[in-house]
């Protein structure tokens, strides 16, 4: 990334509810656990990761997930865990 682009990155107004496309891979911290599934809050949008065993251990870990579905009206969706990025959690 050039110096100028790192200065200009983030200039502008970012939404509180980012949207995702199915199939998109995103990196994020796991925010908590709800109804037995790990939940990622990205701003006020939510991605749940159903089917992960022992989701409590994932909280505050940095993970890569693949988005399965996302509803732009409720700003929520679900995804599958691709990997846990070791050593870079909160």
């Amino acid at each position: 990334m050039s110096y100028l682009s790192s200065v200009l990155a983030g200039v502008g107004f970012r939404t509180r509810t980012p949207a995702f496309d199915p199939g998109e891979e995103v990196t994020a911290f796991v925010s908590g656990v709800q109804d037995g599934a790990a939940v990622i809050r990205i701003g006020d949008s939510r991605l749940s990761l159903p089917g992960v065993e022992d989701p409590d251990v994932l909280v505050d870990e940095r993970v890569r997930v693949r988005v399965e579905e996302f509803d732009e009206t409720s700003h929520s969706g679900s995804g599958v865990l691709v990997e846990v990025v070791d050593g870079r959690g909160l």
Partner: peptide, 16 residues
């Protein structure tokens, strides 16, 4: 309040 300059983890990852 407005989201000026806000960046999420997936927008741009900080280098280690």
């Amino acid at each position: 309040w407005t989201g000026y300059g806000r960046e999420y983890v997936h927008d741009r990852q900080s280098a280690e």
